[in-house]
């Protein structure tokens, strides 16, 4: 039974959603007609587990400095400030398992969008005013900034191919989603289901 509800209304032009249920969450598997290849994909990942980790727990995540992020193929951890990290689980089971009391489950508090594909950097640059691809190389990056007035948290995965995840407060979910669509219009952004995203995330390096 679907006991959870999406924070974001899917646009009609994205196609007909083929939905399944995951632990009570309605999840769009794919859209009909099929999305095909896309330069930029936008995928609602809000059902994924998320947490804020503060204090001692944050130090154990192995993040040396603010802005740094770690992507281990399952979860993403980003350092907001010393002793304050954000953890997102992108591929594991749909259950937030806090390691200790320094974790606070934020799964329901934030929406999470995947913004991925060859032109995703262009789209993200159009969304925020910070340089999300600075010259210094190495590792994933984490940013907390504003996107058209909405406070957002942004990960640049930097995993062989360009891809980002962006989150914000649930109540602003629709605003952020629409901002992504506006910013991506020029680049041929498509709204996709989870399958396309997983294929991209776990598929071969581009």
């Amino acid at each position: 039974m679907m006991t959870h509800a999406r924070a974001i209304a899917l646009p009609g032009w994205a196609g007909k959603p083929v939905e399944t249920q995951l632990e009570g969450w309605p999840v769009v598997e794919r859209f009909e007609p099929p999305e095909g290849d896309c330069a930029v994909g936008l995928t609602d990942l809000s059902h994924r587990p998320k947490a804020i980790v503060q204090g001692a727990g944050a130090q154990r995540l192995g993040l040396a400095r603010p802005g740094q992020a770690v992507w281990n193929g399952q979860s993403l951890a980003g350092c907001l400030k010393p002793g304050h990290a954000v953890v997102l689980d992108l591929t594991g089971p749909l259950e937030m398992k806090p390691a200790d009391s320094s974790w606070t489950d934020m799964t329901d508090g934030w929406v999470l969008l995947g913004l991925w594909g060859p032109l995703s950097l262009d789209v993200v640059q159009g969304l925020v005013t910070v340089d999300v691809e600075p010259r210094e190389r190495g590792g994933a990056l984490f940013f907390a900034t504003s996107c058209h007035g909405v406070p957002v948290q942004l990960f640049n995965l930097r995993a062989q191919k360009p891809g980002f995840v962006i989150s914000c407060a649930r109540s602003h979910g629709q605003n952020l989603f629409e901002a992504c669509i506006r910013a991506g219009r020029q680049s041929g952004l498509k709204v996709t289901g989870l399958k396309a995203y997983s294929d991209w995330l776990c598929g071969p390096a581009a």
Partner: peptide, 15 residues
């Protein structure tokens, strides 16, 4: 351009 009204919606808005 670039300014958008960002109304906040409650989780109970639609229902």
């Amino acid at each position: 351009a670039g300014h958008h009204d960002n109304p906040q919606l409650s989780p109970l808005h639609h229902v």
